[in-house]
Design a protein around this nucleic acid. Structure first.
Length: 215
DNA sequence: GGCCAGGACACCA
DNA sequence: TGGTGTCATGGC
């Protein structure tokens, strides 16, 4: 299996696009909530749901947990899949509340098993787990989402059509830290929104990016 | 009116 | 392991 060193690509994108300051949120718990609500949904719909939740609960997890599932469903309805997302959201918020939403403490408590602990939560798959690691727990991880798979596919890589396949092939260097992970994912998704097709990609600044730099 | 968006999961072969 | 159907809303 040919491993991919994504660092030349990362540095190229950072130089061309600048820091993305992606996923702005007022709090970590807002990122947690957003990570569930955004699944297969555009951010505009998530914003509508977040506005409802904020109005009713101030996004205070303990207040959200006091609501009935039916109440949560109505508040997050605009984000779609609201029955499943309600189950997931309540389970995830409950899981965090056991450790009083102390993310530093939780990272120490679970150690290297944090990712599998996240994956055990209902409605938390690989992408959401990695997003939480990167943006809530401040840990380095590569988020192999649809935009990332598109990008590496446009760059010529094959057999990276699933999350797990691309994830396995990306080899991050030891000095790749949480800030890099946050920035890289932000850049990839910002880029992905601009280049949804191969044609658009070929007109972009990455069109001349040499694959040999990243192997 | 059809298509898509920052997935997860059950089910099947 | 990999493919497919389902869950649902709002914007274009």
């Amino acid at each position: 299996m040919q491993l991919i060193n994504p660092m030349p690509l990362y540095h190229k994108m950072l130089a061309e696009m600048g820091p993305s300051h992606w996923w702005p949120a007022d709090s970590k718990i807002e990122i947690v909530i957003g990570a569930i609500l955004v699944q297969n949904t555009n951010w505009n719909n998530v914003d509508l749901a977040l506005t409802n939740l904020r109005r009713e609960t101030g996004l205070d997890p303990s207040r959200i947990l006091q609501l009935t599932p039916q109440q949560v469903q109505e508040l997050i309805r605009p984000s779609g899949f609201y029955v499943n997302k309600t189950k997931s959201l309540l389970a995830v918020l409950h899981w965090f509340s056991v450790d009083h939403n102390d993310f530093t403490k939780m990272a120490a408590k679970y150690g290297p098993k944090l990712r599998s602990a996240l994956l055990a939560l209902p409605g938390v798959g690989e992408e959401t787990a990695d997003s939480l690691l990167v943006y809530v727990f401040d840990q380095p991880a590569f988020i192999a989402d649809k935009y990332a798979r598109n990008l590496f596919s446009f760059l010529g890589y094959r057999r990276i059509d699933t999350y797990a396949k691309l994830k396995r092939r990306i080899k991050l260097p030891a000095n790749f830290d949480d800030r890099d992970a946050q920035e890289f994912h932000g850049l990839i998704d910002e880029f992905g929104k601009q280049c949804k097709t191969r044609e658009q990609f070929q007109k972009s600044f990455l069109a001349s990016f040499s694959l040999t730099n990243s192997d």
